[in-house]
Amino acid sequence: MSPILKITLSRLAMGIVTLLIVSVLIFSAIELLPGDIATETLGQSATEETIAAFRERFNLNGPVHMRYIEWLVNAVQGDFGVSLSNQRPISELIAQRAGNTFFLAAYAALIAVPIAIVLGMLAALYRNSVFDKTISGATLAAISFPEFFVAYILVLLFSVTFGWFPSLASVDAGTGFVERLYRTFLPALTLTLIVVAHMMRMTRAAIINLLALPYVEMAHLKGMKRWRVIAIHALPNAIAPIINVVALNLAYLVVGVVLVEVVFVYPGLGQLLVDAVSNRDVPIVQAACLIFAATYILLNMAADILSIIANPRLLHPR
């Protein structure tokens, strides 16, 4: 078996095990919440019978491990149960919300990742120049503000003052693709500002780390242009640490968007999660957490595998 395939399979297996452990944690954490879901949901005035019926309907009786297994088996098949508050199937509720969240994350990533890497390369090329310091300062400033603050500043500028973009990112299933891009531009820009600094600085550092190496000097001594030395000779060898930071930030784009979604009233998973928590709609909370966890694990696993593949020693064994 090729070493790459072996590594990929072992990482995949590890990912699945991690996800299982996380699912146990999610399930038990919610079990441990104080108070009784049935009485909380139905209110103090509910009769014994209605509470019993509620418990029966939402499968709240029976030993914990049996309920966990049942929940997991269903979840694997895409069935997360029904919402406690409006009785609709959760998979339906979540599908659209998750779609929106992933759309926004992908949108922000497509802007942020190329910008971060190109800026990182430029900063490495002109290191310690005014340009480098300006870029580092600006991106650090952007990451230092709380995200809702950045969001409101952007709204103030682009919606209130110039009126170029809507301040509410209201989309639904019927919104066309271009229209969707336009309406979600401000949240995507907010997220971009938040994630660029981290990736850009890692790109810069990873490249600068390599610049003193003999093969980079060799490229200079072969008369290659400085930009080519950075882009062709240094970047491919710096890719592993960059991939890892990119993956971490992509995961953040999916998992960490709650505040931004709230500010722009964007119908994503984060909003759904916030609502579900305040309504004690436990099955939704479980489902959303599971999706977030899976995203994290999947992206980190992909980063691991990619950075291993990026090593020619493994890709082309002796």
Binding site: P214, Y215, E217, M218, K222, G223, M224, N237, R313
Partner: peptide, 30 residues
Amino acid sequence: LRGKRVAYVAQSAAAAFNPAYRLIRQYSEA
């Protein structure tokens, strides 16, 4: 002038070749 009229051979060839590319690609670069 570098690489074209004056060329350089370094002490450690293992360190002076870029690990990411095949030898012939690095040969033909200059």
